[in-house]
């Protein structure tokens, strides 16, 4: 892999050149929370953020998008307007890049989802280092380092960023900014390794995923699911903020006074009471406990069976977003029979 280094003081210069690759979006702060937004000026970017409220998923699978326009004369015509927009996501954390790689598995295998895949091609990813906080458990989910899924990745080594070049487009960006980058020295590598192992030690949450599918099968009838069902509000916050949740609903919306309309795709959640409801009234997951169990089961057991890894990256958003304090790490450690002091 091509690796160079970029002086921190020149980051704003780099960002200004990067604009030619698309509209630059980065984490910005609003009332103590962070979100990915289009930058008006580079000074708005907060690359020291812990996590954004919504993950980058919103750029690839928007909360609401038009799939087709329906006209009486022509039937369903694919909507393509928004797909060509070129965006540079500046400052994506490793866990969120892993999440995109997971979504690639879902939307890029079997039947290909052309909407998602077109956006994925048109959106440039510049990853950045982070410091774990009390909700992070990406290391446990093997998502604390990204090897693929980015165009460039910036790793903090003090005065510089080590810059990993992941794609040809990433290389184009480096070349476009030419003199800003320099060769990596031996002492840079030593510093990188020192910081990397230091980061490893800062995680406060930990869980073992090795045999989770088996544990989930064994504990399918455990009391904890009823307990969680009593607590869970079925609000769906956890899936809205999840970087790997991809459930969606589809609806036809007719314009008033005409027969024309749009077919739209909207985020949905398996926590919602209607998720498994079929016409005629049968509901295969009527109770809150069955739905929250399903969510955990799907991520840690079902997804493993289909794609070979859990669909959780340990970003901590669901822990932060849950209004009643349900903590996935705590739940899993309890299922496993390991009580972890900091997860209660």
């Amino acid at each position: 892999m091509k690796i160079l280094k970029l002086e921190k003081g020149k980051l704003d210069l780099f960002a200004s050149v990067v604009q030619q690759f698309g509209e630059v979006h980065a984490p910005t702060e609003h009332e103590g929370k962070f979100s990915f937004k289009r930058l008006n000026s580079w000074s708005e970017a907060r690359l020291d953020y812990n996590r954004t409220v919504l993950p980058p998923r919103k750029y690839f699978l928007p909360p609401r998008e038009t799939l087709f326009k329906y006209r009486e004369a022509t039937g369903y015509v694919p909507a393509t307007e928004d797909l060509e927009k070129r965006v540079v996501l500046f400052g994506v954390h490793a866990c969120d890049i892993h999440a995109l790689n997971i979504l690639d598995e879902v939307f890029g295998k079997g039947y290909l989802d052309p909407y998602y895949l077109t956006r994925r091609k048109n959106i440039t990813i510049i990853g950045i280092d982070c410091t774990p906080d009390e909700h992070c458990f990406c290391r446990s989910m093997r998502a604390d380092f990204a090897e693929t899924g980015f165009d460039l990745f910036l790793k903090d080594i003090g005065d510089h960023y080590l810059t990993f070049v992941g794609t040809a487009r990433g290389d184009d960006m480096v070349i476009a900014t030419g003199p800003l980058f320099s060769e990596v020295t031996h002492s840079d590598i030593v510093e990188y390794k020192r910081r990397s192992s230091q980061k490893c030690d800062t995680f406060k949450l930990d869980l073992e995923i090795r045999d989770l599918p088996e544990i989930f099968e064994l504990e399918y009838q455990a009391d904890i699911w009823e307990e969680l069902g009593e607590k869970c509000l079925s609000c769906g916050n956890c899936s809205m903020v999840c970087p790997t949740c991809y459930c969606y609903d589809v609806a036809d919306e007719v314009k008033l006074g005409s027969h024309d309309g749009d077919r739209v795709r909207l985020w949905d959640s398996c926590l919602f009471a209607t998720h498994a409801l079929v016409a005629g009234g049968e509901n295969f997951r009527k109770t809150r406990s069955s739905r929250i169990k399903f969510r955990f089961y799907h991520k840690q057991r079902g997804f493993v069976a289909e794609y070979g890894r859990p669909s959780c990256v340990g970003c901590g958003r669901c822990i932060e977003a849950c209004p009643v304090g349900i903590n996935i790490v705590g739940v899993i450690n309890r299922l496993r029979g390991v009580e972890h002091a900091s997860t209660d």
Binding site: F107, G110, Y111, C247, Y248, V250, C270, V278, F284, G302
Partner: peptide
């Protein structure tokens, strides 16, 4: 089997039972 489905192609998540999708 019958399930709620929004995509039919293994994406939307509605028809999932255990670790399988009814649609695919």
């Amino acid at each position: 089997l019958e399930r709620r489905m929004r995509c039919g192609v293994g994406k939307c998540g509605h028809c999932s039972v255990g670790y399988k999708y009814t649609c695919i």
